[in-house]
């Protein structure tokens, strides 16, 4: 099992459930205490970091590769890009499904709480990270015969 497979397992088993629960914290704080700058800022930072964490992985691994510190070859890069795209495809379908569900089940006055939107986004990140890690594991598993121990 190489470094990226280990990271994917940790993400799948720990990060996704923790994010799905703790990601709601800024939303709860804003609901209770009102839209303060700090809460809004923490929500924006957390969601941006969660949704675009793959960019950081790509950037830092490519940088360390240039310094010859780690093994991050073309195959790892290709796997990361493919799994990210798979994650985005499922995320898009998730957004459509939520939209249709809300549309169909809205109350008679046809309005929903404004907090539904951020909750959908936070749970969308959990879906995205789950699919990204899952497809990474599948891809390494399929072609991982020569992976490092």
């Amino acid at each position: 099992m190489n470094k990226f497979q280990r990271e994917s397992w940790i993400t799948l088993l720990l990060v996704v459930p923790i994010w799905a629960i703790c990601g709601q914290l800024p939303i709860l704080l804003i609901y209770v205490e009102g839209p303060k700058f700090l809460h809004l800022f923490s929500f924006a930072c957390a969601t941006m970091l969660g949704g675009l964490s793959w960019l950081l992985i790509l950037f830092f691994n490519s940088k360390q590769k240039r310094k010859a510190k780690i093994e991050f070859d073309e195959r790892d890069k290709s796997i990361l890009i493919r799994s990210t795209l798979a994650g985005y495809v499922v995320l898009w379908i998730y957004f459509i499904a939520v939209c249709i569900y809300v549309w169909l089940t809205a109350p008679p006055d046809r309005s929903i709480s404004v907090n539904v939107m951020p909750i959908v986004i936070v749970e969308g990140i959990a879906v995205f990270i789950f699919i990204q890690s899952f497809t990474t594991l599948i891809q390494y598993g399929r072609g991982g015969g020569n992976s490092e121990q």
């Binding site: 804003i30 609901y31 009102g34 839209p35 809004l40 939520v98 939209c99 809300v102 549309w103 809205a106 046809r110 309005s111 929903i112 709480s113 404004v114 907090n115 539904v116 939107m117 951020p118 959908v120």
Partner: peptide, 16 residues
């Protein structure tokens, strides 16, 4: 949406 409506507010279902 949060800033405009406030956390206790509601939005039209068509916004989504």
């Amino acid at each position: 949406a949060w800033c405009l409506v406030g956390p206790q507010g509601s939005i039209s279902v068509n916004i989504m």
